[in-house]
Design a binder for these strands. Structure first.
Lengths: 117, 117
DNA sequence: TGAAATGTAAACCGATTGGTTTTATATTAT
DNA sequence: ATAATATAAAACCAATCGGTTTACATTTCA
């Protein structure tokens, strides 16, 4: 064998959560998702409403792509982006699972405090 | 009037979402939340399981605090941290709202494509 | 009166983020 | 062939992140 294998590793669930929450942690990117929720769009159109430079928006889209939230279909010179909600579901499940769990804990605690002690 | 008023501005909803998603975008911080979900804890105990330095964990907790996810009660020299799930609900609502909306859109699109055209 | 415990603050570091401008590269239209 | 279009890539920048170490301030305990 020659040099380093550079195994194309699929990120673990934890890492994907990092990527998804990171992607969501920016207002511009959330707005891009909202825009893509209405319909797929090419990058020029996505960038048009913003005051920031085109490359800036292009980079935001790459962040969304890395998180698996956006797919890109290249057709000639135009790149058409579309939304993928699957990673959102994953994040949503994480949030819902823990939030509910914790809320139950907190309610139990509150009840316990009410009951005399 | 004297100098700059330094209005103590409550962050807009959008900004708070930034803070919450940013706070969630790190595995250590998610683990800290999980730990606090079991019971409130002082910072020493929170930091104990980690290999990283104490100040590092202390900083993570500050990030959680800034996002409103953790409250701190100082009693003498010990700082007792507890979980606040309210900002999580906000993030969860954001996710659920858009994800459902988008999924409906995508389903409608799929149906449309199936119907002949 | 110390010394130990519990934390923050500050200074530093390399990597990443979010932006810029400039340059390069295909692809399409004239 | 040339020009316009759609995009990436690269080089740069200041700010933030995630971590370190060292130093400091308080509070408790012996």
């Amino acid at each position: 064998m020659s040099t380093a294998p550079t195994k194309a590793r699929r990120p673990r669930k934890e890492d994907r959560l990092d990527l998804v929450f990171t992607a969501l942690a920016n207002r511009t990117r959330r707005a891009l998702l909202a825009r893509l929720g209405r319909a797929p769009a090419k990058i020029t159109d996505l960038a048009a409403p913003y005051e920031m430079s085109f490359p800036a928006v292009s980079k935001h889209i790459r962040v969304l792509e890395r998180a698996g939230l956006v797919n890109r279909a290249v057709d000639g010179r135009v790149h058409r982006c579309s939304l993928d909600t699957a990673p959102l579901q994953e994040a949503e499940r994480w949030l819902a699972f823990y939030r509910v769990l914790w809320d139950e804990k907190l309610e139990a605690l509150a009840r316990h405090l009410e009951d005399g002690e």
